[in-house]
Design a protein around this nucleic acid. Structure first.
Lengths: 352, 352
DNA sequence: GAAAAATTTGTTAGCGCTGTCATTTTGAAT
DNA sequence: ATTCAAAATGACAGCGCTAACAAATTTTTC
């Protein structure tokens, strides 16, 4: 029935078909595909028409094999909150789609103790052109060192250290101070603070912001008004137990993330407190949670999606510029985003 | 300084190096790498040792170009809840890591109206071996038709139709009936129901389960006790407004997802109702939300991570078996998972 | 112990593209 | 016109691997 055909092992359209149809060599087609200069506009148009007509799209494997790029970037994550990851991915994909890159996702398996090794393995197995690092992976020095040893470009979201490289971050300190300003503006003078996980980087700067906010209003920093949490619900509840049982409890409590604020709120409601009348609560991050709680939470909005988008753009820009020079030093560029306060229902003036 | 070397354009180790070191041909190395049979155990061992020693990992691009597989699967999503996506990805990656596959993520851009076209483009640009489809993408017939036309294998999570193919699902109907059984067991006889988005597939089966549950206790299905929601917080609040204002409100309300339950809870608390004393509430999905709310929500646990893991395994199994036959018909196999009831704090006996 | 069958291994030709370098064409400068 | 540089295009060799087939080796059979 079927005659054994000569060439076409795959039915797919190749660069040859495009070249033939537009009457140029495959190399010229390749030039057009890669936006190389020195192609006459008229030929470029002809080639593009052929591409269009044949609905051709280049084979990434062939490109990857012949060239130096794979047009794929990787995102490695470890224990993020679902919301954080979701917003990040959304932003990354926006940037990727715009630039014709694909996204490969990877999470180190929990039984792999050495993160740097995991990352290296992932990179060597998947041959991504670059990596996007989000906390806490982006804060592990060993990982960064390993990547630089290999010469793989990366960009970081919310880097903590001053290490040079590509990245985006938010001014946690400033935003925290704003929260305190909001609270003092309402009339609060006794403001509790729930700090975060000591190993998480934002913890320190948010605490600093809290102190800064107090300082600006000439309020004393009182050690007993600060509790260390773990960025989770439970530690918010524990902090609640601590604060609400004080002989002279604060009139407002600033939890340095939403989860802990939720725990605190939950605990206070359970105890029969009325929020925000008897106690103002503020959070940080503006996760969807903050709108789901009742009353909805006053918090700081983190432009996570946008940050991820921008970080990806920085990375891709770098890749496009240095697509030939493999080990090109990453320029250093960190963009800082605003994290605005969102006033909702958990903050109000203290009872007179 | 540097002498121009002969061959090594990339510093990377190739199959040739492994072949040389183990004293066999590259084809034999290839056989070992791909777990092909008819390699003598002793040679296999020798090759594996060399692989190990050289820390070699095959170039995916070369494999993809030469062979018929890319060892990459794609996951396409559209408007999932962050939690759903997160748990899904976790499961998918577990399966991928175990099998040496990579995961490429893609979301159709919102300004692309034709989903089937988006999917086709993604597939042809990324050359994935197979696709994992989650709701609602997996329910779009045009997408499935397009994939079958191309001959790309896929597996679905929670397929609604009876279309043959690979998939995993949960018995929504049974689980819903269980919720009703729980409520009636507590003594409730007047049970409200908030159904879901009419276009979302689970909606119908959860409603059926509700009816079934009533039937089993010889309770009448009353139309006025069913409200149509949209699976979001706001519709839960609206449903709350409806139910709480009834002359004879139900003593228990079953919301067919957690978000709506949260909205209802929020609204009821706002109105000053005491939960669960005055009103029992049950949800569906067991999102983290359900533990964050106060009181914590009684709900149905969906084993999303596990389902995604299993769906991926089914897909990969298929790929491994049919890795040569491109258009091999997908076998039909749908595994059904249990969705157990989780009793927490929002359900209690009605007031006497 | 030779022939036949089964098993294991090797040889070679691409897969579809990009990089290198050679060649042709074009435009500017005599 | 003629020369020459610059711009545009093309020819061709791989990139590292797998598929198809060929060859060598081992095992089985009588």
């Amino acid at each position: 029935m079927h005659q054994k055909r000569q060439r076409p092992t795959t039915g797919r359209i190749t660069i040859n078909d495009v070249a033939e149809r537009s009457g140029v060599s495959i190399k010229t087609v390749s030039r057009v595909l890669n936006n190389e200069p020195s192609v006459r506009p008229s030929t470029r148009a002809r080639v593009e028409a052929a591409v269009q007509a044949l609905d051709y799209s280049p084979n990434p494997s062939a490109r990857g094999l012949a060239g130096t790029q794979s047009r794929m970037i990787g995102l490695i994550y470890e224990n993020p909150s679902p919301n954080y990851l979701f917003r990040t991915i959304t932003g990354v994909l926006e940037a990727c789609n715009g630039a014709g890159y694909a996204l490969s996702l990877q999470a180190p398996s929990p039984d792999e103790p050495n993160l740097a090794e995991s990352v290296t393995r992932f990179v060597s197995q998947s041959r991504v052109d670059g990596l996007l690092l989000i906390p806490p992976v982006g804060d592990v020095v060993a990982v960064l060192d390993a990547l630089e040893a290999i010469g793989l470009p990366y960009a970081r979201v919310s880097p903590l250290d001053g290490r040079p490289g590509l990245g985006v971050s938010v001014d946690d300190r400033h935003a925290s101070a704003q929260v305190v300003a909001h609270l003092t503006g309402l009339g609060h003078r006794r403001i509790g603070f729930i700090s975060g996980h000591p190993e998480h980087g934002a913890t320190q700067s948010r605490l600093e912001g809290y102190r800064l906010g107090l300082l600006r209003k000439d309020l004393d920093f009182e050690k007993e008004l600060v509790v260390e949490g773990r960025f989770d619900l439970e530690s918010g509840r524990r902090a609640g137990a601590y604060f609400l049982d004080m002989k002279n409890p604060p009139t407002a409590i600033f939890a340095s993330n939403d989860e802990m604020a939720a725990g605190l709120l939950q605990f206070a409601l359970e105890r029969g407190w009325r929020i925000p009348e008897q106690l103002s609560i503020a959070g940080f991050d503006d996760t969807p949670l903050s709108r789901t709680l009742w009353p909805p939470l006053t918090t700081v909005h983190q432009p996570i999606r946008h940050m991820a988008l921008r970080a990806t753009e920085l990375l891709l820009e770098h890749l496009d510029i240095h697509n030939h020079a493999a080990g090109a030093r990453l320029g250093s560029r960190v963009e800082v985003f605003d994290a605005p306060l969102v006033e909702r229902g958990t903050t109000a003036p203290p009872r007179a």
